[in-house]
C-alpha cells in the first residue's frame, strides 16, 4: 500500500528512481516522503517493541552499583559488564531444574497434542464420518475456552486424580490448549493434499493407517513443524495452570518460579531477576529464529482457516 502517493504529487515532486527494486506503485513515492511516512514511524514502533529486551539483557549484565546509581553511570549503557547474576542464577538457585521442568512439560504435552491432533484432523477432513463438521466446529469452540475460567474446577479434578504438584498434571492439561489449535491448523494442511493420492493407495490395498503414516504425514511436514513450534511456545508461556497446580519449589516451571521465588524485597534482586527472564526467553527466541516462517504461518493459518 502506497499511502499518499499520487494525490500529493504537487506537494512533493516524485522522483522516479530506476534503481529502486520495489514493485507496484512504490516508485511514485519520493525518498523524503518515504522517510516521514514509513521509516520514522516504523523505527519508533520497533524500538518500543524491542526496548524491554534490551533493558532485560542490559540489566542482567550490569554490576549492582551501576544499577542503582543513575547519576554517575549512564543507565542506557554498561561499563565493565559482569556475569555474576547469570552465574548466581545457574549455580546458586534451582534455575536449571526449572528450565528442565519447563522444557520437559512443553515437549511432552506438545508431542501428545500433535499425535492426537494428527489423528483427529485426518478423521475430520478425510474420513468424513457422520457429524464430522459438527466435531470440527466443536473443536474450534474449544479453542475459545480460556484457561482463566477453567483453572478452579481443574484444580479439583487434578486433586481428585492425585496429580497435584506433579508435572504430569500439566502434561495432561496443556493438550486442551494445544489440540484445538493444532487440529484446526492441520485440517487446513490435510485439505491441500490431493484425494487422488489416497485413492491410489486405497486401490493398492493400503489401510487407512498406512495412508496416514506413509502419505499424509510426510506431505504435511511443514504443517507439523508449524504446529510443533507454536504449541511448544504456548506451553512455555502458560502460567495460570502451572501457578495453580504446582506447589513445591523444585517442580515449578520458569514463569512461575520467576514470579514467586525471586521476589524477596532485595534492592539488588533486579540483576538476577532480569537474568532469569532473559535465560528463560532465549531458548524460545532461538527456536523462533530458526523457524520464523513456520511460526508466522501457524499464527496466521489458525486465524485464516
Amino acid at each position: 500500500m502506497t499511502d499518499h502517493a499520487v494525490d500529493h504529487r504537487t506537494a512533493v515532486a516524485p522522483t522516479v528512481e530506476k534503481d529502486d527494486h520495489s514493485e507496484g506503485m512504490a516508485y511514485l513515492e519520493s525518498v523524503p516522503r518515504r522517510i516521514v511516512t514509513l521509516y520514522i514511524p516504523l523505527f519508533i514502533i520497533v524500538v518500543i517493541l524491542l526496548f524491554p529486551f534490551y533493558w532485560m539483557a542490559l540489566t542482567s549484565i550490569k554490576p549492582d552499583e551501576q544499577l542503582i546509581d543513575m547519576e554517575r553511570f549512564n543507565p542506557f549503557w554498561v561499563i565493565k559488564p559482569t556475569f555474576k547474576h547469570i552465574q548466581k542464577l545457574l549455580f546458586e538457585t534451582n534455575y536449571p531444574q526449572w528450565l528442565w521442568n519447563t522444557m520437559y512439560v512443553a515437549a511432552a504435552s506438545t508431542f501428545l497434542s500433535i499425535v492426537a491432533s494428527v489423528l483427529a484432523a485426518y478423521a475430520i477432513v478425510r474420513l468424513r464420518f457422520r457429524g464430522a463438521e459438527t466435531v470440527g466446529a466443536l473443536i474450534f469452540m474449544a479453542y475459545l475456552v480460556p484457561p482463566s475460567i477453567l483453572f478452579i474446577p481443574l484444580a479439583s479434578v487434578i486433586q481428585a486424580y492425585g496429580l497435584f504438584d506433579s508435572p504430569l498434571s500439566l502434561i495432561l492439561v496443556y493438550p486442551t490448549l494445544l489440540i484445538p489449535f493444532s487440529t484446526w491448523l492441520l485440517m487446513g494442511y490435510f485439505k491441500t493434499i490431493p484425494f487422488e493420492l489416497e485413492e491410489c493407495a486405497l486401490i493398492d490395498g493400503a489401510s487407512r493407517w498406512q495412508i496416514l503414516v506413509k502419505i499424509v504425514i510426510p506431505l504435511a511436514v511443514p504443517g507439523l513443524i508449524s504446529a510443533f513450534i507454536f504449541s511448544f511456545t504456548l506451553c512455555w508461556n502458560e502460567f495460570i495452570y502451572a501457578l495453580t497446580f504446582l506447589q513445591s519449589t523444585q517442580n515449578k516451571t520458569v514463569p512461575v518460579a520467576i514470579v514467586n521465588e525471586f521476589v524477596d524485597g532485595d534492592i539488588y534482586k533486579w540483576g538476577s531477576l532480569m537474568a532469569g527472564a532473559l535465560v528463560g526467553s532465549l531458548p524460545l527466541v532461538i527456536l523462533y529464529a530458526f523457524f520464523v516462517e513456520h511460526y508466522v504461518s501457524a499464527m496466521t493459518g489458525a486465524v485464516k482457516e
Partner: peptide, 28 residues
C-alpha cells in the same frame, strides 16, 4: 506491507514480544 529493505528481518523482530513468555516480559 510496503516495500523496504530487510523486510523479513523487521517482520521477524516485530513478532518477538509475542514469542517471549508474557510473564518474563512482564517482569522486564
Amino acid at each position: 506491507n510496503r516495500h523496504m529493505p530487510f523486510k523479513a528481518l523487521i517482520r521477524a523482530a516485530v513478532l518477538i514480544p509475542f514469542i517471549v513468555p508474557t510473564v518474563l516480559s512482564a517482569i522486564a
